[in-house]
Computed example of a mutant assay.
Amino acid sequence: MPSLDPELKKAIVRMPAGEKDKLLLRLITKDPLLTERLQFELIEGSTTTNERRDAIKQFIDRTAKLKQDSAGWVMMDMRTASGYISRHVKVTKDKYGDVELSLYLLNTFYDHHMETLRHYGSRTDKAAQYIAKRTEQMLKKLTKLDPDYFIEFEGDVNRLLPRVHNSCAAYYARQLTIPQRWSA
């Protein structure tokens, strides 16, 4: 991002408040993510984090229940849900929610699509790689949280890890040295 010329900065600061407000409002509307973040912080008072998480969980549930006939379609649905999680984190700065929702996403899709994701093959390769990488990212983010939270995630993580190691993602899980068991 280019820096502003110091003289331009001074000129902007000297602008009348009304003109600055109009300019600011025009600029904010050009960035939907910034608009949503300001809505969350200024209007919602940063108090709707749990409601936003619940909405994403409901989306994950609806999406995971769709009947997919290939691992490629399952992966596409997972990536769509991951996009919602990423947007949530950018808007709310919710690191706990990032781990919780990622873990929920992986476990929920395994709950509904284990047969599709069971065996490795050319049709499951990309999904396998995606699942292993997503699991690795989630574990890295989990270790960065306050250790007091670990106990809350231990059961779900240890439900996920055997699934990853006993499905199409096993090869990539070994490659990424994803543990078979995790303890708080």
Rank of each mutant, 00 (worst) to 15 (best):
M1T: 08
P6S: 13
L8M: 11
K9Q: 08
V13T: 13
V13C: 06
M15Y: 06
P16C: 05
A17H: 00
E19N: 05
D21E: 11
D21H: 08
L23H: 08
R26C: 02
I28T: 14
I28F: 10
D31E: 00
P32A: 00
L34K: 00
L34T: 00
Q39T: 06
I43C: 04
T47A: 13
T47S: 13
R53M: 10
A55K: 14
I56F: 08
Q58N: 05
I60A: 06
Q68R: 14
D69P: 01
D69N: 08
V74G: 04
M75P: 04
M75N: 10
M76Y: 05
R79T: 05
T80L: 06
S82K: 07
S82T: 07
G83S: 01
Y84E: 05
I85V: 06
H88D: 11
V89D: 00
V89E: 01
K90P: 00
T92H: 04
K93L: 12
D98E: 15
N107W: 09
T108V: 07
D111K: 02
L117C: 04
H119P: 02
H119A: 12
D125E: 12
K126D: 10
Q129L: 15
Y130T: 02
Y130D: 00
R134V: 03
Q137S: 15
M138H: 03
L139W: 12
K140I: 11
K140D: 12
L142I: 03
D146L: 02
Y149W: 12
F150E: 07
F150A: 15
G155D: 15
R159A: 06
L160F: 06
L161P: 09
L161I: 10
R163C: 03
V164F: 02
Y171S: 03
R174N: 13
Q175V: 03
Q175T: 08
T177D: 14
W182H: 07
